[in-house]
Design a protein around this nucleic acid. Structure first.
Lengths: 243, 243
DNA sequence: CTGTGTGAAGTTTTTCACAGCT
DNA sequence: AGCTGTGAAAAACTTCACACAG
């Protein structure tokens, strides 16, 4: 298997959906005995995924170890922050040497929760939903797309790659049948919030939405948003003075 | 659709690595005379796009004005930060009342550079590229998709919606013909960097990449990245303790 | 009185810089 | 000598809280 990917760049920002309310305490009670695995800063988190990609490439290249400097350059960040990020997972580096590629890769995967199986249901079999269903980048990274769902009877039953579009009118049943534990929402804006509510009722607590609307989810449900128009708008802003 | 590519870790600082400075764009030496329009914080920027969306729907609802509280709730943020963000554009609110929807909408659009025409070329007519070409959310927001480009002769000439896939072997010609000033890269990982370089040569300075690789671009070129796998990985992390 | 605009306080994240392993 | 791990300083960003305009 020579699956390979290369370095990340510095995926910043991204749209950030807050958990909703101005909560005060996230649930206190830190576990001092446990490694401080939990509660990695959001910023660290997105860099970690980048390091992981770099490490995968390095591993494919047969590199045994790498210093924070090398990782930093490949990931497009500052070496100090690489060390700080990694030290949050525990200290797995060797002074004077760096980090053992395979080992670090393991640790990060574990910290990110990638060792467990993630079963993704894609809701919305329109252009985007179908494109996502065919995207190899998910499966390669441990995310198994187990269902492609739409409420349109015209689409139900149609075959897309290895998937057959399931009937979304009984969402709970499909989610349960395919044992999805994560959902990608690729539906029109108007449909997003109602679906979101329904998903929460089904027990889904991780949702990646492509719908260009702010969604409200109860605390405890994790929602991330990818907003294509927003990305272009931000580019437009930056491009103004350059063009 | 997995492409791979042995990454040239050792040769990655070709383009933009600074000579020793903190990789920033020191281009501007602070222009006090210039309006403080430029240089909106990145965080503010992504919220502004959110407000814009909220305003659009308020406008459609016939609302004449809205307070920071209303905007904040709809956008899922804190009212104070709405006021702070908006005050960075200048003070367009009325004390005791709020903001005039249509007016504010204008101001934000202008600040984001959305008043000019943006002509987007999508490179890569695979699943994702085609899906993006058919995505209405771009045009609605002032981004005109003027070309869908691929180098595969099998695809060239094929019609997708209102677009005909253009031949990417002479990228410069297509970009020039269609007068694109922004590019969306929806190509396999291996193709991304070379294309990126070529685009820069064509004078493109705003690129939105979906390729899961870090891309190097010279200073002055704006690159944003959307990484689907990263999003799922971050969700996975958060979901660990919940599931 | 209502709701903006904003200094000041608070919080989070990044960078610096260096002691201390290997 | 080289590079990690980390306090401490700096910067960025958010929230508070209140004077004051309408």
């Amino acid at each position: 298997m020579n699956e390979e990917r290369a370095l990340p760049i510095d995926s910043l920002d991204a749209t950030e959906m807050p958990d909703g309310l101005p909560r005060q305490e996230p649930v206190a009670a830190v576990r001092p005995s446990q490694v401080a695995d939990r509660q990695l800063p959001e910023a660290t988190l997105s860099r970690l995924t980048g390091y992981l990609r770099v490490l995968t490439s390095l591993q494919a290249d047969g590199q045994h170890s790498a210093s924070s400097g090398v990782l930093a350059e490949a990931a497009g960040v500052n070496p100090a922050i690489v060390r700080k990020d990694l030290s949050l997972l525990g200290s797995y580096g060797t002074r004077g040497v760096g980090y053992v590629v395979s080992e670090l890769s393991q640790h990060i995967s574990k910290a990110l929760g990638l060792t467990q199986e993630w079963r993704v249901a894609i809701i919305g079999a329109g252009n985007l939903g179908r494109a996502l269903a065919g995207y190899g980048g998910f499966r390669n990274r441990g995310f198994d797309v187990v269902a492609l769902i739409d409420a349109d009877p015209q689409l139900v039953g149609q075959r897309i790659g290895e998937l057959v579009i399931s009937d979304g009118t009984d969402l709970a049943a499909v989610i349960a049948r395919d044992q999805a534990n994560m959902v990608v929402l690729a539906v029109p804006a108007a449909a997003a919030q109602p679906l979101c509510d329904e998903l929460v009722k089904c027990g889904i607590s991780s949702i990646l939405s492509f719908a260009p609307v702010p969604l409200q989810v109860p605390a405890g449900v994790h929602l991330r948003k990818v907003d294509l128009a927003t990305e272009l708008q931000i580019l437009a802003y930056h491009a103004q003075d350059v063009d």
